[in-house]
Design a protein around this nucleic acid. Structure first.
Length: 150
DNA sequence: GCCAACGTTGGC
DNA sequence: GCCAACGTTGGC
């Protein structure tokens, strides 16, 4: 099983939204090739850190689980969607989505500022200067470091 | 709101 | 293929 981190703006979709959802939620709108490639490497049952970005308290809010592995992202074909991709077609849709569900809560939000202080996360893209990846892998070692705070 | 850093676009 | 211009991300 692999571990991941995925960013979401809580104003749009928060960890609480995921927790309160009655069924799996689609994680769509990823429009970066590197992030998309990580999506495609996800398997049902993988766990991910749900990260809140672009908000008052950026940080890890909780833990989710991949409920369905990657499939073509329907939002790329929807002209009404903010994620509409004009160059995509049903035959050739380069973008992927996964479905996710709530896995477990953590004791408190783990703020980015605190994550920067931890030892063992130097190679973690989240804390690297200039990194904007919205989907990234988490190594077993990094997960171990973080799980001490869950 | 600012701005650094990055990714993408498009002319050449 | 280069690279300037532009748009986006995302912390602060």
């Amino acid at each position: 099983m692999n571990y991941w981190l995925m960013k979401s703006e809580p104003d749009e979709f928060s960890f609480l939204d995921l927790q309160n959802a009655a069924k799996p939620c689609r994680w769509d709108g990823v429009r970066n090739y590197q992030a998309r490639n990580f999506l495609r490497n996800m398997a049902e049952g993988d766990l991910f850190l749900f990260y809140h970005s672009s908000c008052a308290e950026p940080g890890i809010a909780g833990i989710g689980e991949i409920a369905r592995s990657a499939y073509p992202d329907p939002s790329a074909l929807d002209p009404q969607s903010p994620y509409f991709a004009a160059k995509a077609s049903a035959e050739k849709n380069p973008w992927s989505a996964v479905d996710v569900r709530f896995a477990r809560s953590i004791k408190r939000l783990l703020p980015l500022s605190e994550l920067r202080e931890l030892n063992g996360l130097d190679d973690f893209p989240l804390v690297q200067k200039g990194s904007r990846l919205s989907v990234m892998p988490v190594t077993d070692e990094q997960w171990q470091v973080l799980s001490a705070l869950f």
